[in-house]
Amino acid sequence: MIHLEALSKTYAHSGTKAVDGLSLDIRDGEIFGFLGPNGAGKTTTIKMLSGVLRPDEGRVAIDGIDMAQKPLEAKARFGYVGDNPELFTRLKAREFLNFIADMYRVPDDARCERIASLAGRFEIADALASPIGSFSRGMKQKLCLVASLVHDPANWILDEPMVGLDPQAAFTLKELMRSRAASGRCVFFSTHVMEVAERLCDRIAVITKGRVVFVGTLDELRDRRSSGGDESLERLFLDLVEDASGGRV
């Protein structure tokens, strides 16, 4: 369960207000899609949500634990896949996964079992002895996905997780998202791919210029747009963003 309350962030270096009074509640057992055009504030929101950036205003709580008050406890409650899979290329995949498992204090048996299962599903088990630097972009992304689940978190936060994945891995990821949500866990991810959001998400939020302009189900979006029920999410999304931008996308 993720709670974001009136989050705002202005970058000190550029003076850009990236997120402006954003509030969201993501429930357990749902897949929540976070949509928005480039530069809308998706990654900034995810970074605040994952404790990477400190909000100027507002509050983040993971399973009721306040990120500002108890950051380590809050961080232990989620798995995070960031927007940059180019991590620690000098480490071997095994060393990276062991390191992440150590950070979450995962016992030996559990880490072996989860890594065997996840690395098998993403088809990187045979590459675990290799340096990450020798991996392709997609393999690095798969490795980050495996690492994010090594402690079997209650919440899964992913920033553009489909980027670089082959169709098989993208399918596996979607299956994993569904199975985690079905077992009562929370999945929060950002994406540009409307088809993925349309087929996968229980609810979506659309953000543009740092503000949430819609939260709800796809049907609710269609009702709100009075579109007659058969318009694609892509069309609805573009209309929504165009309206929020004052007629320009």
């Binding site: 970074k47 994952s50 990477v52 406890e73 232990a76 995070y80 960031g82 950070m103």
Partner: peptide
């Protein structure tokens, strides 16, 4: 940023 997301 990735390291900052870890419970360390």
């Amino acid at each position: 940023p990735y390291l900052k997301s870890l419970p360390v």
